[in-house]
Each structure stands twice: as C-alpha cells, then as structure tokens.
C-alpha cells in the first residue's frame, strides 16, 4: 500500500492533520543532523507552506532536501498543502511549487489543523487515487 510522506514543523499542525487520517505515514525529519528519509513506495506528500507571502521559502527546506533525492522524487504521486488564507496569494503556495517542480497533481489544500470535512475528503481522495495507480 502506498503511503503518505509529510513534513511538519515544531508547531505540528500538519502532523496532527495526518494523524487524523489514520493511514501509514512517514515524517521528513526536522533537523539537518537527523538521518534523512528514504522512501521505497509511492506516496503523496503533505507539506505546510512557509515563506509568509514574499515569495521566498514557501516550501520548507527540509522538504526540498527530501525531494532533491532523485529516488524519493521518482515516487511522489501528488501533493497536499497546508497554509492559511491570511497569506493571500501565497496561500498554500508550497503545493503549487512542488506540483510544478515534480510534475504531479496538486491534490488539496487545507488550513492550519484542517476541518473534519477536510479529513474525510482527503481520506476518500487518497483511497481513490491509490485505486487508480
């Protein structure tokens, strides 16, 4: 069964959302000293957006480092982004950037911890996506 790969900073909003999906998930490590994550199966990437709206740093460095690994990159099947609409046109920008860079669909956006509807929708969506693979 393919899985979820996610990044979440110390505020852990994205981690809490992924937990609520109750699906197998691997976390991209926070610190450069941690052993890097190498994946073996296809996955959907979940990432928060940082950067704050001035265009730089929307994709967390840890996520970039993970995707710079060609093997990891070859297994990505889609991206789900987290953010906050207060950031205007930078809302969930990380999702658009990763989608374009890796040529995969930008599947979904949610805010902060996500709502109950977001959780249901993403669970269903992931189920359908894996059926199509």
């Amino acid at each position: 069964m393919p899985g979820i790969v996610y990044f979440s900073s110390v505020s852990e909003n994205t981690r809490r959302f992924v937990d609520r999906l109750e699906l197998p998930a691997a976390r991209i490590p926070l610190r450069p000293v941690d052993a890097p994550l190498h994946v073996k199966n296809p996955y959907v990437l979940f990432t928060p957006t940082y950067g704050g709206g001035d265009g730089q740093g929307a994709v967390p460095k840890q996520v970039i480092r993970f995707l710079n690994d060609e093997h990891n990159r070859s297994l990505i099947r889609g991206v789900v982004a987290a953010g906050n609409t207060n950031f205007g046109s930078a809302y969930c920008l990380a999702g658009s950037i990763v989608a374009r860079k890796c040529k995969v669909p930008h599947l979904y956006n949610f805010e902060l911890l996500g709502t109950a509807e977001d959780v249901t929708r993403v669970r269903e969506g992931l189920g359908q996506l894996w059926l199509q693979q």
Partner: peptide, 22 residues
Amino acid sequence: SLSPNADENHDFFSGSGSSYVI
C-alpha cells in the same frame, strides 16, 4: 478577496488526478 487562490477548486482527487495545470 482575502486570498485569490482560496476558492480555486483544489480538490483534484476526483477526476483523472493527472491533469493539474498551474
């Protein structure tokens, strides 16, 4: 008006799932 991409439908789970164009 708050966020121009907020109401863009980012629910691409349905459909082919491969046709996303920015």
